[in-house]
Amino acid sequence: MSRRMEAAMARQRVGRRKVQPRAPYQGPGWRQKPTLGVDVGGVIVMLADREEDTSFFGSRPLLTPAVTGVFEALATLTEQPFAGRVHLVSKAGPKVAANTRAWLAHHEFFGRTGIPSDHLHFVRERRDKAPVCQRLGVTHFVDDRLDVLAHLETVEHRYLFRGGTEGPDSTGALPHWAIEVHQWAELAALLASSEVG
């Protein structure tokens, strides 16, 4: 076999090999850029049914209201301190994912907030948000479910959002790693006043 043929075969083998993404450099002085992850149901979209992760108004999903202040807060946070590093991570099956995409388009969500439309990620199980957040380098996450936040062990700052439902909130002591917030204005002010960037 000629050397040229061997080289061509070697290039083919390398081309088939899956390349694993490199972990970011974490040497002296390294600091991860702040990246915000946000749930959809109960955080961006008001919940019509507390039992569902993302629930809409029956046959009229586009009429489901947004959580008060979400557009303004996310527009501000997307500009600074997160500088375009904001991702939506939502648990949804195909029907709810389609309703979510339609709702976001109908409300011109991406244009109003400055979040890129390809920063929308769907998972099938709540615990599946953890590997997505790890892959995206999420440092801050907002969710209305404590059980979801418990899975996000690689996320340093976890916020339990209570302002996305008209039903009663569950009460009880929060774990030390969770910060409870009730409004988007409150969360935006908290993030702006902390040393995020």
Rank of each mutant, 00 (worst) to 15 (best):
V19K: 14
S59F: 08
P34C: 13
R162Q: 15
H140M: 01
D49R: 06
T64K: 02
E156Y: 09
T76Q: 11
G42T: 05
V19F: 10
G137T: 07
V155Y: 07
A8L: 05
K33P: 14
W103L: 03
G114A: 00
A185I: 07
T100W: 02
W177A: 12
R22Q: 13
I179D: 09
C133M: 01
A173Y: 03
F109Y: 01
L62Q: 05
S170F: 15
L190G: 07
F71V: 15
T165M: 07
M9E: 13
E6I: 11
E72Q: 10
A192P: 08
E195L: 14
L88Y: 06
A150S: 11
E51V: 11
G197M: 14
L152Q: 12
C133V: 03
F56N: 00
G197W: 14
G114T: 00
D49Y: 02
Q80N: 13
D118T: 06
V14K: 15
C133D: 02
P28A: 12
A75H: 13
L62N: 02
V67I: 03
F71G: 05
R22H: 13
G163E: 07
L146P: 14
K33F: 11
V96M: 08
W177N: 13
P168T: 11
R126M: 14
P81Y: 14
C133F: 01
S193W: 04
H106K: 00
G172Q: 04
E52D: 03
F71K: 11
V132N: 05
G84P: 13
L77N: 10
E153C: 09
V96D: 08
A75C: 11
P81V: 14
G111A: 01
